[in-house]
Design a protein around this nucleic acid. Structure first.
Lengths: 164, 164
DNA sequence: ACAAATTAGTTGCCATTGAAACCATGGTCA
DNA sequence: TGACCATGGTTTCAATGGCAACTAATTTGT
């Protein structure tokens, strides 16, 4: 009966579907956060992540930044290039391996960082206040687990499973 | 002391920063899910959402799909266009308002939907199993709250707050 | 010591996407 | 009725982002 929607199975409802809700949530939050820095410093998410990562660790390679911030190397490369043009980041050669270079914030970059970090923390604080106090720790644990294990979910599902 | 990273404030750590973790989590989950349908049907996320939405409601306008699935109208337009080319969706004129049109799945579209929906539900089930049973309800509540209220977080933060 | 494989990072290319302009229709108000 | 505004949807344009190819430097294996 193709005319009767949602009868096929245990009813797939988009608005209750976890992957979808995670996406929507992440987008809304990300958009709200970016309002804090986007126009103010004319940077986007990748640049913000590079700034924060360098602010946190002081000096590291592009590769390390990419790993720490879950960004593709081309994204890191371009973000760093733009921060370098703006004199917010400097590149220092590594004499022991000339393929890579050590990146760090300039004083100007650090100024922006110390202006931006408190705002970000304040944003995160207000964000957490939205969640019921009793649910906060659970949210953190759930995200940890999902980040760690979601990639491993059997793609066997694809192969036309559930015959029963 | 600009040489000492992470001293500025209560230490902003990217890997603990909620907006960042939501993004990472959503991406990982989304990528894993798309492995189930991407190559199999040669569709992307927007097309998947349109299919699922039409499967759920049977018949609706592009605008309604956009609202229900949190998608920009251009995204919906293009996704529908491609599903139409593939004869998975049909467009029927609304005689009472020729600006809009009613969209619904063709039999072929419904075939794909009834193949795809159980896989999606199974995926969501396995995903939830990753989360500790005691944390599952909390995760759901937290996402609801965040989706509903995160957009409203004061952008006053941007205006150079915390002077103290 | 040298060829082959590996790695850090950049660049060219193409697909995706959102904003803004646009088109066609419908509603409003005089 | 006709001028204006609003709305559903498509298209154009510019920005973004990922893949693959590339360069330069390092490591490995013989």
């Amino acid at each position: 009966m193709p005319a009767q929607p949602g009868t096929a199975d245990a009813a797939l409802k988009l608005e209750e579907f976890l992957p979808y809700r995670l996406n929507v949530c992440a987008n809304i939050v990300s958009t709200a956060l970016s309002r804090i820095y986007a126009e103010r410093y004319s940077i986007g998410v990748p640049e913000w992540r590079v700034l924060v990562t360098l602010g946190q660790f002081g000096m590291m390679t592009a590769k390390a930044i990419g790993i720490h911030s879950h960004m593709h190397k081309t994204k890191v490369s371009r973000a760093v290039a733009m921060l370098e043009r703006r004199k917010l980041v400097v590149r220092r050669a590594n004499r022991d391996d000339l393929r890579e270079a050590f990146l760090s914030l300039t004083p100007a970059g650090r100024d922006i960082y110390s202006d931006l970090a408190p705002s970000a923390l304040e944003f995160a604080r207000q964000l957490m206040e939205i969640v019921e106090p009793a649910d906060r720790a659970a949210l953190g644990r759930a995200l940890n687990k999902l980040i760690e294990h979601a990639a491993l979910i059997a793609s066997d599902i694809a192969k036309g499973g559930n015959p029963g």
